[in-house]
Write a protein that binds this DNA or RNA. Structure first.
Lengths: 133, 133
DNA sequence: GCTTGACCTTACAGTAACTGGAAGGATTAT
DNA sequence: ATAATCCTTCCAGTTACTGTAAGGTCAAGC
């Protein structure tokens, strides 16, 4: 099957598939006589795997490791779990950071009239941040 | 004052200050006879402003607008508030996305033994995602 | 006066993970 | 036959820096 069929089935743009091939995340596709890439069901399967993992926010490097573990029938599930737990920790960190930003901004926005007058607690804060957690 | 003093006071790396100058986010610094950039208190003030705004996650383009509004004594505080509210909406979207990922991963991780055996619900899910919210 | 180390300068490359676009060949539909 | 749609490769652009190299400047110590 052509790349755009594979792409549609995997839920990835064709460009992304070529990119994954370029960086060695997937092995080079078989080629037809006309030079077109040709994908089989198992290729699409791996692409879906990658689409899912990337969709859960794993880095391409994590995906490399995950694909390798997927292919290794002697893997230890602990190795997979470690990667997942690290990802969860990353997410928690990011959420905490975003929540802090949000709280600060919500506070400032609430104190800003938001009308045609120039006085603005938001800009005042940016200019001289008052100590705030 | 030299760039690294200004950087220390603004809470930004010197490289970032030069970069901001390169992209026109700040106006080119005055130069001393030896070619070194020379910063005054008001320059540091703007740099601190930018450091704060970037720390709250505003894009460099938003910062451009915010600095312009800061400089414009005829600004409407509503324009500032609009930018802040858009940023809050972005944050909310991102948090929601991260929470969805986290829930999925936490569920999978919990169901994974995480030992030396190869069977792993995480990889199983990546291979054939079961429908899940 | 000289050296050493810490600063400063510019310019270019690299990061993450794609995405867009150009130039050109292949296939399919009309 | 031709037009539309696919495919190919390659290069550039995105965000916001960060690293590194090559070289000039300055302040301190001997």
């Amino acid at each position: 099957m052509n790349i755009s069929d594979a792409a549609a089935r995997a839920g990835l743009p064709p460009k992304t598939i070529r990119y994954y091939e370029d960086i060695g995340l997937i092995s080079p596709a078989r080629r037809r006589d006309n030079g077109y890439r040709d994908y089989a069901a198992r290729d699409v399967h791996i692409l879906r795997f990658l689409s899912r993992a990337r969709g859960l926010g794993f880095s391409v490097d994590d995906c490399r490791a995950l694909v390798a573990l997927y292919a290794d029938t002697d893997r230890k599930s602990g190795d997979v779990k470690d990667i997942a737990l690290r990802r969860i920790a990353d997410i928690d960190e990011k959420i905490a950071e975003l929540r802090t930003m949000r709280a600060t901004l919500a506070d400032l926005a609430e104190r800003c009239h938001g009308d045609d007058r120039p006085d603005c607690p938001i800009l005042d804060d940016f200019a001289e941040p008052e100590s705030r957690a």
